[in-house]
Simulated scan of single mutants.
Amino acid sequence: MTSEMWIWAAVGIVVAAALAGLGALAVLFALAHGEKGPRRFAVAPVEGDLETYFDEKAAWAATATTTVPGTPEHVWAVLAAGGYLALPFLLSGPDVDGDKLVYRGPFSAWAEEVARKEPGRELVTTGAGVSAPLLIKSFGQRFLLRPAPNGVMIAWTVAITPKWIGFLPLRWTGFVARPVLGFVLRRAFR
């Protein structure tokens, strides 16, 4: 094979990979949109005790903590109203409808249901559905609110168990997400 043929083969492989990637994004985009998007594929309910799931059982979890000015009642009002995690072009939501929450992004959408709430103190949600199949086994979020000397301390935990690699010890990677979760948390409740 000549060097010219090798170059054309490499270009062909790169173009094929780019087209496959664009095709995958188009499929994810289509699955995430529409009324059914966030509940297109059901996820397993969190098994056992919720605290144990967040603190030990979930394959991956990260907790961000910050203190914001205001009262626990004010922070609870923001949680109850929804829309607090909206990031332009990346994420909208949650849209709150009673005990159901829906989040949407350009290539993913997911639905949660309130598992436990204590106004002004705690909100725990667990996954009900996702737009992309074969990825997530279970997931949930936990918001803990505590009075602090200069406002309200919020501890936000996100926990996920993937379907195919949930047996791997992924928890140690949570430190990577913690700064991002902290930024989103501070932005949401400023």
Rank of each mutant, 00 (worst) to 15 (best):
A24K: 05
A26W: 13
L28H: 10
F29S: 13
A30V: 13
L31P: 07
L31Q: 14
A32I: 01
H33F: 07
G34C: 10
E35R: 09
K36F: 05
K36G: 11
K36R: 15
G37H: 01
G37Y: 00
G37M: 01
P38L: 06
R39F: 02
R40E: 00
F41H: 12
A42H: 05
A42Q: 09
A42W: 05
A42T: 09
V43E: 00
A44V: 08
A44N: 07
A44L: 08
P45H: 10
P45W: 11
P45Y: 11
P45V: 12
V46W: 11
V46R: 08
V46M: 10
V46P: 12
E47N: 04
E47Y: 01
E47H: 05
G48E: 11
L50S: 09
L50M: 14
L50C: 09
E51V: 10
T52A: 15
Y53R: 02
Y53P: 01
Y53C: 03
F54W: 09
F54R: 05
E56T: 12
K57H: 10
K57N: 13
K57R: 15
A58L: 05
A59T: 06
A59L: 04
W60A: 12
W60T: 03
W60S: 08
W60V: 06
A61H: 09
A61W: 03
A61G: 07
A61C: 03
A62Q: 07
T63C: 04
T63N: 03
T63M: 03
T65S: 10
T65I: 08
T66G: 06
T66R: 02
T67S: 08
T67R: 02
T67F: 04
T67G: 02
V68I: 00
P69F: 05
P69V: 09
P69W: 05
T71Q: 04
T71H: 03
P72R: 02
P72H: 06
E73N: 03
E73G: 08
E73I: 03
H74M: 12
V75T: 05
W76I: 05
W76S: 04
A77Q: 11
L79I: 07
L79Y: 06
A80Y: 00
A81K: 11
A81I: 04
A81Y: 04
G82K: 07
G82N: 10
G82I: 11
Y84E: 11
L85E: 12
A86N: 13
A86W: 04
A86E: 15
L87H: 07
L87R: 08
F89R: 12
L90G: 08
L90F: 15
L90I: 15
S92E: 15
S92V: 13
G93D: 14
D95M: 11
V96A: 07
V96H: 06
V96E: 09
D97G: 06
G98Y: 10
G98R: 06
